[in-house]
């Protein structure tokens, strides 16, 4: 029900950040996520960052995908 894309944080100025999703930069409100730094990835929905993307978890999921598919 909700289009959201993973975007990389390029710079932060108080409540706003410049974020980039694969060649498209935009300003995003980042008040809804805490503890953000340049280089982090966020989930962008309707002009706002709604969650920080957890790289460790992303890798884990990919690993799970791969492992599960190797076994029967």
């Amino acid at each position: 029900m909700c289009i959201a894309v993973p975007a990389k944080v390029l710079s932060i100025d108080k409540n706003n950040a410049v974020v980039c999703f694969e060649g498209v930069k935009t300003n995003a409100n980042v008040e809804l996520v805490g503890d953000l730094k340049t280089g982090d990835y966020i989930l962008l929905h309707a002009g706002c960052a709604i969650q920080k993307i957890n790289e460790v978890e992303a890798k884990k999921t990919l690993e799970v995908f791969k492992q599960m598919l190797e076994q029967d």
Binding site: L32, I50, I53, N54, E55, E57, A58, K60, T61
Partner: peptide, 17 residues
């Protein structure tokens, strides 16, 4: 399967607002 953005309790800040 979406743990890269979904935590067990969700987003504290978003729920707060």
């Amino acid at each position: 399967l979406y743990s890269k953005v979904v935590e067990y309790e969700g987003s504290r800040k978003a729920k707060e607002i």
